[in-house]
Amino acid sequence: MALDPVLTAVGVALIVPISLFLGVIYSFLLRKITARLQWRVGPMVQMYSDLAPILGRSRILQPLYDVLKLFGKETLVPDVPHKGLFKAAPYLSLAFAVLAVFFIPFPGLPLLSAVPYSMIIASYLIIAAVMFTIIGPAASGSPWGAIGARREAELFLIAELAFVVSLFSVAYAQGTLTLWNLAIDVGRPLNFVLFAMAGVLMFLAMLGKLHIKPFDIPEAETEIVAGPYTEYSGKYLGMFFLTRVFLFYGLVGLFVAAFLPPLSSSLLWLPVYAAAAVLLVFLLSAIHTLSPRYRIDTALVSYSKLVIALGIASFAVALVLRLVV
């Protein structure tokens, strides 16, 4: 499909506020559902009437308020040799997360996902965004930051395996590396078997990338304070939070595009797209509520067992679908 430069430019301009808003909503839902499952109130949808004049009518945008507050705070930079890297990492991480969003289709907005090999580009951009949450903390000179970065790197390796295997088995079965083609084409009727298996893999990858329990190992505050973010404060920390918001939107969008076609293909599918996204966030929240945190070594062992088994199986299914059916 040929790209219309004007439409694409408009789409790219629109997708930044859309993804920011949806990422904030997903983060809010994660917090709210987790809170309700734990017998807590969580961020208020409708504020108590007596507090509303002071606190505002709703706290649905609470994750955004947190980021805005951080932008207003003092930013401290530790006196370390790699100050430049320390300062640049949040900017680069955020930039890559925003760039990744451009390559992920939204209902009615193909954006840059129609570019050939867009799936590979999107994967690399997401990987780069996570990469800089390792490099920055490693340069921070804090032992907590170093241990957090190390754990992040270990988790990253294994989460990346699940991420790549799940995406590429689908791409192989469908015979395309362009996300938009994946998003509009259901393909063979038997593809749903592959979508289910690869979807589970992708779900596991999302747990690791978004630091959702039991894989919030890099940020285990009771063990290693704030982990990678220990030395970060103010706007830099806010940028990492924003990165998380964009990544949340991007991963949910990628999940729907790759495993639930054709929900991203047309604006008419938007209600179903929203329902699927909320269901996905609900599942993430349920896992988040029901699990304690894994220790990094147990996590790696059990995670890799599951991922490798599922990965081989889904590749086999993809092979059968491609060659036989």
């Binding site: 734990q38 017998w39 807590r40 039991p214 285990a220 009771t222 509520t289 304690p292 945190r293």
Partner: peptide, 10 residues
């Protein structure tokens, strides 16, 4: 401490 907030709340 082991990150099981639900157990804590319960």
């Amino acid at each position: 401490v082991i990150g099981f907030k639900t157990g804590f709340m319960l």
